[in-house]
Design a protein around this nucleic acid. Structure first.
Lengths: 345, 345
DNA sequence: CTGTTAGCGCATTCAA
DNA sequence: TTGAATGCGCTAACAG
């Protein structure tokens, strides 16, 4: 049985208050009592109970991170690690700890109910998803990353549409007309069956805009097709396998997550296809290793670290009763060798 | 002001207990009261306070992960993400949440004191480091990953010495005699200045064993030198720059973290050196992207995911009052193209 | 099936 | 400088 503040107080012949001061505000008691209390505490291995303290102070000193999928899925994507780094950076600065909450279907509600946090950051959860209700119910401040802008939501994101446009523009201007687009599906947190997040919707809109401008369009009768995939190497490989064996093989593959591109690379190697000779591959995110792949991956640079950083700062503001607005960060199209001209058919 | 269980009880004309049952054990009350209580709760936006509940139940449902460095440093290394995935996998299964604790110098003690967790997993913290005292003091179960085996410690690791031997053996058998070894320094958590973790010590021992066997040794007068580096791409690049400009340029570079090797690759490219033509590069960890680098990286495969998984299972056992023993997982030397014969001088 | 009564361990006003 | 009293919000015997 661990010692409590009462035990220490009794043994030291003082009141609980004094013991509390010894730990939280030593300047308010005499040197002697302080020393005596600490000695006894040391001896009994007493440490103030963090939970009780939290209850009394109404502050956990912890923020939650709600992921869009199970953690073992999500961290397959190096981009997520970047976001986490940004979050952690601010947490360190603010003396906050970070609690990772996984959205297990079924118990998600419980998870959120029971999360002892002062605020929450969500990844890829857009307006309209019912989880957000829970936050409101608990009166918990939260900010979304890549959730999309909407009334009453504080969000950190990028201009999905704009950067998608420049990405597609690059492909088209390189002569590509047969394009496979690997969209990201994100079903875990949606309640009504399959569902593209706002992020994906926006990217698609951006693509369509450019295509339209060039008299092209997505569709089964055209060479431009959309595939629903996961943000993993494996999903990239498998979808590539499917796509590359088509009679009308695409000359370019667009991965909406860089990590997928690695899988595409692998499949290309297996099939003896050269990049970008036979097929161009472009990604999205610009993960740290993108420049070191073979060939270096053309992609849209996305500031993962800064996203996490910004989101956390906003959240801290909200916890401190401020009411910040949403933030949109810059992106940049990074052309590298994996993008080349479309081969003549 | 958020509603409390008392408010609900009063409004529903029942006792607190009944309200508590409504949320935790509905089968113990009648349908009607349940419905009435839930209605009122809904209306007032009542949700049981997780902290108060935790205090009463003496279980947080949360485990802590104590990193060896600031989070923004640590997650630069993809290997860590693998470990995290393993931890998260079990957490999901067990309905636990995961709290990431950063070892900020100075406030680490506070951090650990205040962490509301049922147990802790540490990364790279070996026996003798004073942090472990704190855990004992709090009576907090903990398991170390890569901490090294010692009495009274539950650890998950690999046979550092054995796999280091096979790695060095591979180099020597390829004719390498001029070797730069990029050891990992891990100073953040050590109190007595620079300090190699037990892990590093063991790796070094393994290297020395093989070298000795071949009549070689580490030292400033020999071609085999040790450098103290960080497990980051940048550190790899910078150290490579230093090393590759030596009059007696090494024919092989050993990175004790794969991510460093990427930096070494970059520097080699800048200097126009071919891998493995001019210099061989071997890593450690076998990060997921290791096979996709250019050239594919020879390395020691280390089961990051399974380490995290095993550690978490052990911790859960300990939380459940069992007393499990340490675990040693297998490694495997993975030869890929970055390792070649030493060039003739 | 429901209510009563105690804690859980600490922080904090207010007096002394 | 110290202590007594009170509250934080909830759970858990134990009765009824």
């Amino acid at each position: 049985m661990r010692a409590t503040i009462n035990d220490i107080a009794r043994m030291a012949g003082v009141s609980k208050t004094t013991v509390s001061f010894a730990f939280n505000n030593p300047s308010k008691i005499s040197q002697e009592t302080f020393a005596r209390i600490m000695d006894i505490a040391q001896e009994l291995g007493y440490v103030p109970d963090p939970v009780a303290r939290t209850l009394a102070m109404k502050q956990t000193g912890c923020i939650g991170l709600l992921l869009p999928q199970a953690i073992q899925e999500v961290f397959l994507n190096p981009y997520i690690a970047e976001v986490l780094r940004g979050i952690g950076y601010v947490c360190d600065h603010e003396g906050l700890s970070l609690s990772v909450l996984s959205p297990l279907k079924g118990v998600l509600t419980q998870t959120i109910r029971n999360a002892a946090v002062d605020g929450i950051i969500t990844l890829g959860i857009g307006p309209g998803m019912s989880v957000l209700e829970l936050f409101h119910q608990r009166g918990l401040p939260f900010v979304t990353i890549d959730g999309g802008v909407a009334d009453g939501l504080v969000n950190v994101g990028i201009d999905e549409q704009a950067c998608s446009e420049s990405l597609m523009e690059a492909l088209v201007s390189h002569g590509h007309r047969d394009i496979a687009i690997f969209m990201l599906k994100n079903v875990t947190l949606s309640e009504n069956g399959d569902h593209f997040s706002l992020t994906n919707d926006n990217r698609l809109t951006g693509f369509n805009k450019v295509l339209q401008r060039h008299g092209l369009s997505i569709g089964s009768h055209t060479g431009i097709q959309v595939y629903h995939t996961e943000a993993t190497l494996r999903s990239g490989r498998e979808t590539a396998r499917e796509v590359l064996s088509l009679k009308r093989r695409p000359t370019a593959i667009v991965c909406l997550a860089d990590i997928q591109a690695v899988g595409v690379y692998e499949e290309c190697r297996i099939q003896g296809l050269s990049i970008p000779g036979d097929v161009s591959v472009v990604g999205f995110d610009d993960i740290p290793l993108a420049p070191f792949l073979n060939p270096p991956l053309a992609t849209v640079h996305q500031p993962g670290f800064r996203k996490g950083e910004a989101a956390t700062r906003l959240l801290v503001d909200m916890i401190n009763k401020k009411t910040p607005g949403s933030v949109t960060l810059d992106t940049e199209l990074v052309i590298r060798e994996s993008l080349g001209p479309a081969p003549r058919s």
